[in-house]
């Protein structure tokens, strides 16, 4: 096997666990993690970056790293320890509902005068805040719908057909220029951001890495297929109203036509996707595998929990008049496009 000639660069470490994982990929040896993996903060930068790097081997890998290391048992062993810590923390902290219906019902009510990130950006978002938001969210959107495709072989019947239909829409309905990840890259270009895959990993804090790691975790494990379906349902149910606000924010800030189109498209697309995911994918899965009910609810709750943490990071930084990005690349981002 030869190393990847292209792809994202390995990021800077953020502590002993991520240093061991990144060092192992750079040097070709096993990760020398020691006890650090078992004690790292499950939501902290160090653990989340180590997990992000481990998962990236399943997406596009890293320049100069042998792609065969995706299945390196030593890396997978460390990854499993990190996943267990992350998952245990989420089950303890995020679980709020016992049934999928109860969890979804809470998402299907719109808060009046809400104070989430889309509300704030719609009311008063500056162009630089929109750029910060898009740079960090690019870690998710440039993988949009990718880890969800991993669940397809684990579904059957209505759930599989519904999931595949929504994924077809996410992947542009057969047209490369309509792939949602491409539409987001177009939005980034409107905002003067670099559309290179992986470009803003260094800019993203632990809260954003956790949002991305959650979908990779659920997508890669068949045992977590119920949670993946719940996660997808939560994303689709909350996306349409949030997208309407973000489209308004882009319009108000004069971000550009592609930036507006990305969110306008998601208002209509996700109003449909929500219906298909709830009635076909969730109901279809639970009709065949009713024992997954609590896992679906957990996937919904964990998604909301981590989205809220990311939102709190943004809003607390902005309220303090600061950048929500990690300090290291702050200057790089304010460069005029």
């Amino acid at each position: 096997m030869s190393d990847e000639p292209t792809g994202p660069m390995l990021p800077q470490d953020r502590g002993p666990v991520s240093a061991a994982m990144i060092g192992a990929l750079r040097d070709g040896g096993p990760p020398a993690v020691g006890e650090a993996a078992a004690t790292a903060d499950p939501y902290g930068d160090d653990l989340q970056l180590a997990l992000y790097v481990a998962y990236e081997l399943h997406y596009r890998g890293f320049a100069g790293v042998d792609p065969a290391r995706e299945w390196d048992p030593e890396l997978l062993r460390v990854r499993a320890v990190l996943e267990r810590r992350f998952l245990d923390a989420l089950r303890a902290d995020a679980t709020a509902h016992e049934s999928a219906t109860a969890a979804l019902d809470d998402l299907l009510v719109e808060p009046v005068g809400g104070d989430g990130v889309p509300h704030v950006l719609e009311r008063s978002g500056t162009r630089s805040q929109l750029r910060e938001y898009a740079a960090q969210r690019s870690l998710y959107h440039l993988k949009e719908a990718d880890p969800h495709a991993w669940v397809l072989p684990r579904l059957w019947g209505r759930a599989k057909a519904g999931m595949a239909a929504v994924e077809f829409d996410e992947f542009g309905g057969g047209r490369a220029e309509r792939v949602h990840a491409q539409l987001f890259a177009d939005l980034m270009a409107d905002l003067g951001l670099d559309t290179t895959y992986g470009r803003y990993v260094e800019a993203a804090g632990a809260e954003m890495l956790a949002v991305v790691n959650l979908m990779s975790l659920f997508g890669l494990h068949r045992a977590l297929r119920g949670a993946l379906v719940g996660h997808f349902a939560a994303v689709e149910v909350t996306s349409s109203p949030a997208s309407r606000r973000l489209a308004g924010a882009m319009r108000r800030a004069g971000a550009g036509p592609a930036a507006e189109f990305f969110y306008d498209e998601h208002v209509e697309a996700d109003a449909v996707h929500e219906q298909v995911v709830r009635h076909e994918v969730v109901d279809g899965l639970l009709a065949v595998e009713p024992h997954l009910e609590r896992d679906v609810a957990f996937g919904i709750d964990a998604t909301g929990f981590l989205d809220d943490r990311f939102g709190e990071r943004l809003l607390s930084a902005w309220q303090a008049g600061e950048s929500s990005l990690r300090r290291a690349i702050e200057l790089d981002l304010v460069r005029v496009p």
């Binding site: 719109e110 808060p111 005068g113 349409s240």
Partner: peptide, 17 residues
């Protein structure tokens, strides 16, 4: 606001949260 397409405006609204 995107009639005839649904934009989820039918959802119930709640003042708290």
């Amino acid at each position: 606001r995107r009639y005839p397409w649904c934009d989820t405006s039918h959802r119930r609204r709640r003042r708290d949260r």
